[in-house]
Simulated scan of single mutants.
Amino acid sequence: MLMAQVTPEQRDAGAMVGAEFATAMVVFHEAVGKLLGLSPVERKCLDTLRRLGPVTAGAIGEHTGLTTGAVTGLVDRLEKAGHVVRERDPHDRRKVVVKLVPNERNAALMATAFGPFIEDMTELGSKYNQDEVLAIADWIRRTTDILVANTRRITTMDAP
């Protein structure tokens, strides 16, 4: 695939849009977390469990880039608040998995927060053809991988 030459102005404009997007994403998830009484990291951990089902703390770390110590503290807080439980893995009794606890109140609040958002995003997605959607999905996947890798890098650094 040939890449078109990008001018410095286009690169700067792209960086500005990317920064605005990142800020909007963080602020949106902060607002949703506040609605649920959870930090953004706690809420995203619950999202990870919704997507993956019951998994080990190590798997949570792999998908988020957080260290094992950070995941342990995160799961401790979520368990104390009644959002998750630790259980023996039914396939390997030596392992412990983290499992979501159904919560009707949170489900209703999530529907309130995300219902209109999903409708808006569905409408936006309908404006693109299949090749454009695939390109956007590819960019999001690669950006996610970069974010997780850099989260892992930062969380394992010693503070100066």
Rank of each mutant, 00 (worst) to 15 (best):
M1V: 07
K44G: 03
L147K: 15
N129Q: 12
P54L: 07
I154A: 13
K127D: 05
A4L: 13
T72C: 06
E79F: 12
P54V: 06
D92I: 10
G115R: 01
A159W: 08
M3R: 06
N103Q: 08
A57K: 14
L66S: 04
G53Q: 02
F114Y: 07
T67N: 13
M110H: 13
T23M: 09
A19L: 02
L35W: 01
I60V: 03
T112R: 15
R86P: 02
M1Y: 10
A13D: 01
G53P: 00
Q5A: 12
I60K: 04
F117N: 10
P102S: 00
H91Y: 14
D47V: 12
G18F: 09
L66A: 06
L100Y: 13
A159T: 01
D138G: 15
L124I: 14
D12M: 11
M25C: 00
L35I: 00
L78S: 00
V32E: 01
M110T: 08
F114G: 01
T144C: 09
R141L: 11
A31C: 05
E119D: 13
G125P: 08
R105Q: 09
G73C: 04
T56V: 08
R50G: 07
R105L: 06
E20P: 01
V101R: 15
H29L: 04
N103I: 03
L38G: 02
Q5L: 10
R88I: 06
G37W: 03
M3H: 04
F21Y: 08
N103F: 02
R141S: 08
V97A: 08
L52E: 00
H63A: 14
V26G: 02
